[in-house]
Simulated assay, not measured.
Amino acid sequence: MKHKILIAYFSHTGYTATLAKEIADLTGGSLFQIQPVDDYPEDYRATLDRYKEETAKHLRPAVTGSV
């Protein structure tokens, strides 16, 4: 039985996207980019503040698309 491979990733700066694409190339997997409905700020500190708030409140931001 052949297993299907899904590489789901979130990449704010593009670094994780690059790694996900390399993994897909090595494994033959399919890529799925997790994209929030409301984009994260470009500013690092603002992004970090949003992350901390979401984590503290156990929030899971809405995302676009589906697998």
Rank of each mutant, 00 (worst) to 15 (best):
V67K: 00
A62Q: 05
T16R: 06
A17Q: 03
S30G: 13
I34N: 01
A20D: 02
T18M: 14
K21M: 10
I5G: 00
F10D: 07
A8R: 08
A17M: 08
R50P: 06
T13Q: 07
Y9M: 05
R45A: 14
L31E: 06
P61F: 00
Y9P: 03
L59A: 08
Q33E: 13
Q33W: 08
G14S: 03
L31C: 02
Y9C: 06
D39G: 11
A24V: 06
S11V: 05
E54Y: 08
H58V: 04
L6N: 08
T13K: 06
A24G: 05
Y15N: 14
V37C: 08
L26E: 11
T13R: 07
P41E: 05
K57E: 06
F32R: 11
Y51F: 15
K4I: 12
K2W: 00
A46C: 11
K57H: 03
D49Y: 09
Y15K: 15
R60I: 09
I23A: 05
A56P: 01
I5W: 01
D49I: 11
E53F: 08
D43Y: 06
E42P: 13
E54L: 03
S30K: 14
V37S: 10
T55D: 10
V67T: 00
K21G: 08
K21S: 05
S11H: 00
S11A: 04
L59S: 04
K21R: 11
